Each structure stands twice: as C-alpha cells, then as structure tokens.
Amino acid sequence: MTDSPLTTVPRSVLVTGGNRGIGRAIAEAFLAQGDKVAVTTRNGGAPEGALDVRCDITDPEQVDAAFAQIEQAHGPVEVLVANAGITQDTLILRMSEDDWTSVIDTNLTGSYRLAKRAAKGMLRLKRGRLIFVSSVVGLLGSAGQANYAASKAGLVGLARSLARELGSRSITANVVAPGFVTTDMTDVLTEDQKSAIKQQVPLGRYASPDEIASAVTWLAGDGAAYVTGAVIPVDGGLGMGH
C-alpha cells in the first residue's frame, strides 16, 4: 500500500502504546512521513522524534491530560491510532472478573475514551481519521482468549458506529486487524508453536510490524479518503471470509 498525505502540512498524530511492537512501527512510519507524532505509554520509551506522553488509558483524567499536552505541542489530533492493548489469557472457567474487566477496560473502553476525546477536535477541524488496531482473533475467536477476542470484536462495532456518526464531518473510522506479527510477544513462543501457527497462514509466515504500519498510514492518507467503517485484515489470509 502507498500513502499520500492528507496535506503538505505535517499532521498531529497520536499513537497509543507506541513504545514497542506494532505501535512503535506505526509511530515511526508517521514520523518518516514528516508528521508530528505523539505516543502514549505507561512507562516511556517513545521513538526518537515523537512526543513521549505518559498515560494510562484506563484513567479518563489521564486521557484528558494527555490530549491537553498533545494539543499544546502539536495542535488538535488529526489522526488517532488506538493501538494500546493487553492480554490476560486463560480458559473461561478459570477467567477471573479482573481478567475480564482489565482487558475490556484497556482494549475497548480505553479506545472509546480516546475516540471520544479526539472527536472533539476533529469535529472543529471538520476532518480526521480514527484508526483502531483490532486482531484476527476478534473475528475468528481463540480458545483461552474470550476476553481479548471480545474486546477486539467490540472495536469493529465502535468504529462502524462512529463512521456513521461522524462521516458528515469528513471524519473516517476504520479498523486494522493484524494476524500473527513478529514482536517480542511472539518471540517467546517455541519453534514448534511458531511452525504450527505458520501452517495455518496461507502466506506461510508472520507479518512484520512495518506491514501493519503500512495499512495504518494508508488509511490515514488521501488514498483512503472514501474508506470508512472498513475492517482491513493484514493477516496473511488467516481469517479470510471473516
């Protein structure tokens, strides 16, 4: 996918969870385009050139404070990439109330908080891009990940509802659904586990974080100006038909 910027003027971009893995690759891709990028993390470690904002997205007050800091430094957020997420994997009979609520509150409710706050500035600008990072698991399901899958499936309903609410103001809302990606989270798998996963993927390999970032920057660019309410799978064919 290729990207053409919305404008020649650098945009204010916010990527949550942008200190590692997919989020870091997304932040670096926007930085490479010359955008003004802010990254929220809990413990720091944003890419060089990005505004490092400490924020726990499960805390509404921290979300408001983060946006105030970003708006002061870069102006209103024009592109939001809601990427921050956690897992608490276990089978349903062993899943505690906290296992469920912590994942839903971070992955789904956190994305709602971010989108709600970002939409304020986008409505004034009469333009904007909301991009939610979901997962193939949200569409296929995964044993031992009922909480995670539910949270990621919920992002699809959230994005499509916002696409209908905000479209008249030239604000798009879309979802990217990665499959298995080479990150520190997958590096801990054994070679047998990695091989078994690859056998399920028609392309026979994991994605690189940069391939996910390419889909995100495309959705944020002029080439995707008429794309909204879409779910873009970047999963090597793993979830086709879903």
Rank of each mutant, 00 (worst) to 15 (best):
V39G: 02
E48P: 11
D35T: 09
D64G: 00
N83R: 11
I26N: 13
D59M: 01
P76I: 06
A66K: 03
Q62S: 10
A84C: 07
D56S: 05
R24D: 02
A66Q: 04
D59F: 00
A29Y: 12
F67K: 12
A25F: 07
V81M: 11
G44D: 07
K36V: 00
G49A: 07
A65D: 12
R20W: 05
D64K: 12
V79Y: 08
E61W: 04
G44T: 03
F67E: 12
E61R: 15
T58Y: 00
A38W: 10
N43Y: 08
C55F: 06
I86A: 02
V63R: 02
D89E: 07
Q62F: 04
V63L: 02
G23M: 07
G85I: 01
R24P: 02
P76E: 13
F67H: 11
A66V: 03
A29N: 12
G34T: 09
E28G: 07
A66G: 06
V37L: 01
V37S: 02
H74N: 15
G23N: 03
E28T: 14
F67P: 09
G21F: 09
D89F: 02
G17T: 04
D59E: 13
G18E: 11
R20Q: 15
R20N: 07
A38S: 14
G23Q: 03
D89W: 02
T41M: 00
E71L: 01
E71K: 03
D56A: 05
T16L: 08
T87A: 04
Q62P: 03
F30N: 11
F30C: 12
G49W: 07
I26Y: 13
A65P: 00
V37G: 02
T40N: 05
L80R: 13
D59N: 15
H74R: 08
L14D: 06
R42S: 02
E61L: 14
Q33D: 12
Q72W: 01
P76C: 03
Q62T: 03
G17L: 06
V53I: 15
V81E: 10
V63S: 01
V15W: 13
G17C: 07
L14E: 06
V15G: 13
G45C: 06
E28S: 14
G49M: 06
P47V: 11
A46F: 08
A65W: 00
G75L: 06
D35H: 15
D35M: 09
V81S: 13
